[in-house]
Design a protein around this nucleic acid. Structure first.
Length: 279
DNA sequence: ATCCTATCCTGGCTGC
DNA sequence: TGCAGCCAGGATAGGA
């Protein structure tokens, strides 16, 4: 079983990295797997970042944005996507790099910003402006833009299976397979329910479930099952202990006692409870 | 508009 | 025990 970093894992990464990178100067770049850079050459990337400082680090959807400046003026941004097995962290001087470190940048305090990615699906890209890289993204589920009436209208505008729709980052930004399964279970919605047919009560429940689950998961510093997701401090997250359905195929539902099932919906492994979730 | 498939990758798992 | 083959899984592109 894998863990793909979703909004809570990316948010945790950003929060823990912030004090380690803010204001730091960017030095020598080393790249093991050039395709991680998304087509840009190592030399170009190095030229762009050399002598810049980190002005800010933020999250948008599942992207990490490291904004850079030179003499206080904006000088581009590094856009990182962890995809499934990526980790971004800072090592102190002398720390032995782990295997699968694909990109590292020496910082002006001798530490290294390291991007580790076993499967190499992640991206670590430079752009003059993040708009060159970020695709169209829906609202942030923890922002004020995400309201029940917005969700109701938007669900009705589409007529899609609810799970693939919630995974669509241009619809709503930041959810992935795990938190969608958990949110649908909490809201009592079948993963294949038609988005346009959910009544107002279900939609309110879904809105509340998404907010609640993401908020608690961030508080727990995300979820980890295996060696993949770790916070930048190297610790596993703690939210996996709260999973109601994800990864619990064949085990009893914690709410109704029925058996948690696993099926495939929209080409994704999907965990749900027939007793709790209806179309 | 929506859905489906292939692609990118590697480690872990299954089955023999 | 060893090994070949299968599979997951986010995002995207291209075809139906």
């Amino acid at each position: 079983m894998q863990l793909m970093p979703e909004l809570p894992e990316v948010e945790t990464t950003v929060r823990l990295l912030r004090p380690m990178v803010l204001g730091r100067g960017m030095g020598e770049l080393r790249v093991a797997w050039a395709r991680i850079l998304g087509g840009q050459s190592i030399a170009e990337f190095q030229k762009h970042i050399r002598g810049t400082r980190v002005l800010s680090i933020d999250r948008r959807a599942k992207y990490i944005l490291l904004r850079l400046g030179r003499q206080g003026l904006p000088a581009g941004v590094i856009v990182v996507h962890l995809r499934m097995t990526g980790r971004l962290y800072v090592d102190p001087p002398g720390a032995d790099p782990e295997s699968h470190v694909q990109v590292e940048i020496e910082l002006d305090n001798g530490h290294h910003l390291r991007f580790l990615d076993v499967r190499k699906f992640g991206r670590f890209q430079f752009a003059h402006d993040e708009s060159e890289i970020l695709p169209a993204l829906g609202p942030e589920p923890l922002s004020d833009d995400f309201q029940p009436h917005w969700l109701m209208r938007s669900l009705q505008r589409h007529r899609r299976q609810i799970k693939p729709l919630l995974l669509d980052q241009s619809f709503l930004a930041g959810l992935g397979n795990i938190y969608v399964d958990e949110a649908l279970h909490r809201a009592g919605i079948h993963p294949q329910a038609n988005s346009a047919r959910l009544d107002a009560e279900r939609v309110r429940a879904l809105h509340g479930a998404i907010r609640r689950i993401l908020t608690v998961a961030i508080r727990r510093e995300g979820s980890s099952f295996d060696r993949f997701y770790r916070t930048p401090e190297g610790k596993p997250g703690g939210y996996q202990a709260q999973f109601q359905v994800y990864g619990r195929e064949g085990q009893p539902c914690r709410r109704c006692g029925g058996t948690v099932r696993r099926t495939v919906v929209g080409q994704r492994g999907t965990h749900w409870c027939r007793g709790c979730q209806h179309r």
